[in-house]
Design a protein around this nucleic acid. Sequence first.
RNA 1: CGGGAAGUAGCGCAGUCCGGUAGCGCACCUGGUUUGGGACCAGGGGGUCGCAGGUUCGAAUCCUGUCUUCCCGACCA
Length: 492
Amino acid sequence: MSKEITSREQDYSQWYNDLVLKGGLADYSAVRGCMVIKPYGFALWENMRDVLDKMFKDTGHQNAYFPLFIPKSLFEAEEKNAEGFAKECAVVTHYRLKNDTANPGKLMVDPEAKLEEELVVRPTSEAIIWNTYKGWIQSYRDLPILVNQWANVVRWEMRTRLFLRTAEFLWQEGHTAHATREEAIAETQKMLEVYADFAENWMALPVIRGVKSANERFAGAEDTYCIEALMQDGKALQAGTSHFLGQNFAKAFDVKFSDRENKLEYVWATSWGVSTRLIGALVMAHSDDSGLVLPPRIAPLQVVIVPIYKGDEQKAKIDERVLPLIQELKAAGISVKYDDSDNTRPGWKFAEYEMKGVPVRIAIGARDLENNVAEVARRDTKEKASVSLDGIASHIKTLLNDIQEQIYNKAKAFRDANITPVNTWDEFVSVLDNKSGFVSAHWDGTGETEEKIKELTKATIRCIPLDNPQEAGTCILSGKPSTQRVLFARAY
RNA sequence: CGGGAAGUAGCGCAGUCCGGUAGCGCACCUGGUUUGGGACCAGGGGGUCGCAGGUUCGAAUCCUGUCUUCCCGACCA
């Protein structure tokens, strides 16, 4: 089967779909808007999950698990949050099916099994968690509560895209409770930094740390912090969010604690999450027209070895040299696969592993053995080099680190080259239409202006960068005075 | 949810207008030759034509409904 990939230039959306499908990450399913994550894609997610999970635990968090279903009355308790999600909630109304007597062999919803109270399938878990926290918290001695859960959530999206926006997706959601405002804000910022660290150092994805405008804020939050990444087509993608929830949920669920002076106070809250959407970001940030390009630190498979031989005798000699090499690489903590299957030829394997984004390929043939070398090819640049078999394991280890760094540097150079400061409306529109990427511009700080800009250009404020330099200027649309630039972009 | 397109073997497609034995390439199986960028020869298997109704002697083909996907829009943390 030939697996041609649509080029980015020809059709960026189709290129993305081709990569996800042909790279073996995911498949469509029989359920509208829901995808099947295939073993290779799930292995990638597991690697990401494991790293993040360790980071959460290293910062004092513990995992727990809360129910998938949320009684409607709990869900609606925090009004803004409920309102924000209401339009995309799946709702369970019945608990039983029965045989359809009018239609033999078919089932129907049993009208007598209607639920007394409908259950909302969680689009996020603040409600059920804060309802639970009420029972866990009495005194300041019970705080902080630092809990995370790995879960699936459902948001009934109108238009879905593999990994980027699906009706059901996997994520983690951290939910913490604190005695003071300051501590909660510090937690929000700390977790944002964990996300940024993960994105940059593991996914090789440069991100901008920032705060959302009021319009883009999480429903029910006082402040939403985010990391924003730039894709190769110049569109921005929100890669993670961390919310300072103030006392909104504590008030909605009546969660109070006695402080040291025995005064009753409402608890301060945060929540933060990243999802399988990160896989979409990974694909779009690094890959090329030959397939996926995965950063070595989270690639499901770091090295593939392809033998090239004529006849069993040569194959045996190659095995003799390769098997110890595999042990050596594994001992160095490198994941490796020896693809000596005989049903495809080397050229096919080369193309296949390029499609799957395996960072390093080693090809070994009879000629190489004579010269005590192997051909080492790196996926990111497709450069090939002849490398001595003596000490090749340490060479590979260095190479993997180098690839990780190069991928990051390349993405960062692209990102930095696509943050364009503008001072006039004409420039603003022109950059969005002709260059795209982030546009750094003055904004008067009002929701009305932001909304108007969105209507006119489809660009939204992605974030107000943290540590943003303050400078006097005038809003590109309204001309009103502004104290700082913010980042606009068209986004996923 | 609106507009457009598509669904026929695992994948990519032809056949549909004009109803009459379901085809091609790749993949798969067997045997052989091969193996440094998607090998070749010979033989072989596999499809209730997305699903459900309808029209007809007869439906992949015509009609109705429905599901899934893609593109564009609306919506979206």
